[in-house]
C-alpha cells in the first residue's frame, strides 16, 4: 500500500499512525504540499480531483478520504479496530468518524491560518473548534464514568485515531487544551499504545521509557 503523505498533515498522520499501531506496512510517497503545492499538480489531481492528500493506493484501488483509509486498513489487517462488535459500537464509530470531519474543518482550519498562512475567519474556526472539544470532553467523561478509556469502548478503534490528531494539535491553531481533563487522559491513553508514533507538534511521552539516569545508578 502506498500513501501519498505530508509529514505536517494530521490527516496523513492518521493513516501512518493506525498502520504503525496495527503493524501494517505502508510505502510513503512524500508530497511537496508546502511550499510546492504538488497536491494541486496534474499527477496527483488524476488520483484525487479534489487536490487533497492523503491518497492511498493499493494496486489499482485508490482511496481519497482518511476515514475510508482507516476503515480499509482495519478491515484488511486488524478487524478489532473497526469496533463492530455490537450495532451500538458500529454506529458510534460512524458517529465519531463523521465528527472527526468537524474537527478537521474547525481545529484544522485554525491551524492552517495560524501556522501555514491559510485563509479563513480565525475567530469562527476557533469558536467551532472549542464547541467540538467541549462535546468530545463531555463524551469522554461519560466513557470514564462507564470505565472506558476510549471513544467506543475499552479498546481503541479507528474512531479514536480519526479524532486524535486534530485534537492533539489544537494548540497549533491557538486553541488551548488546558480545560479538558478527560481529553488529556484519552490522549495519554492513545499515546501510550504500543506502536504509537508521533508527528511534529506531538511530543514523545518520555515518562514511558525508564529514566536512563536511575538505570545507570542501579547497575
Amino acid at each position: 500500500m502506498k500513501l501519498y503523505d505530508y509529514i505536517l498533515s494530521p490527516s496523513c498522520y492518521k493513516v501512518r499512525l493506525l498502520a504503525s499501531l496495527i503493524g501494517a506496512k505502508l510505502d510513503l510517497q512524500s508530497v511537496d504540499f508546502h511550499p510546492g503545492q504538488e497536491h494541486k499538480g496534474d499527477a496527483l489531481l488524476t488520483l484525487n480531483p479534489a487536490g487533497a492528500i492523503p491518497i492511498l493506493e493499493d494496486g489499482a484501488f485508490v482511496l481519497t478520504e482518511s476515514s475510508a483509509m482507516l476503515a480499509y486498513l482495519a478491515a484488511t489487517t486488524a478487524p478489532e479496530w473497526e469496533g463492530r462488535e455490537t450495532p451500538d459500537m458500529s454506529a458510534k464509530v460512524q458517529q465519531w468518524l463523521a465528527f472527526s470531519h468537524r474537527l478537521t474543518a474547525s481545529l484544522g482550519g485554525a491551524r492552517l491560518v495560524e501556522m501555514l498562512h491559510g485563509n479563513g475567519d480565525l475567530d469562527a474556526l476557533q469558536g467551532a473548534g472549542i464547541a467540538a472539544l467541549r462535546e468530545l470532553e463531555a463524551a469522554l467523561f461519560e466513557q470514564r464514568l462507564a470505565g472506558q478509556s476510549f471513544l467506543v469502548g475499552e479498546q481503541p478503534t479507528i474512531a479514536d485515531i480519526a479524532c486524535f490528531p486534530y485534537v492533539a494539535l489544537a494548540p497549533d491553531g491557538s486553541i488551548t487544551l488546558d480545560p479538558y481533563p478527560s481529553i488529556r487522559l484519552w490522549m495519554r491513553a492513545i499515546r501510550s499504545l504500543p506502536g504509537f508514533i508521533e508527528m511534529p507538534g506531538i511530543h514523545r511521552l518520555h515518562d514511558l521509557v525508564p529514566d536512563p539516569q536511575s538505570s545507570k545508578e542501579d547497575h
Binding site: 505530508y6 512524500s30 507538534g201
Partner: peptide, 15 residues
C-alpha cells in the same frame, strides 16, 4: 520533497 519534509518536521517540533 523529502529534504523539505525533514526540515519542516524538525522545525515544527520546536514550534
Amino acid at each position: 520533497t523529502e529534504l523539505i519534509h525533514f526540515q519542516q518536521m524538525i522545525f515544527l517540533q520546536d514550534r
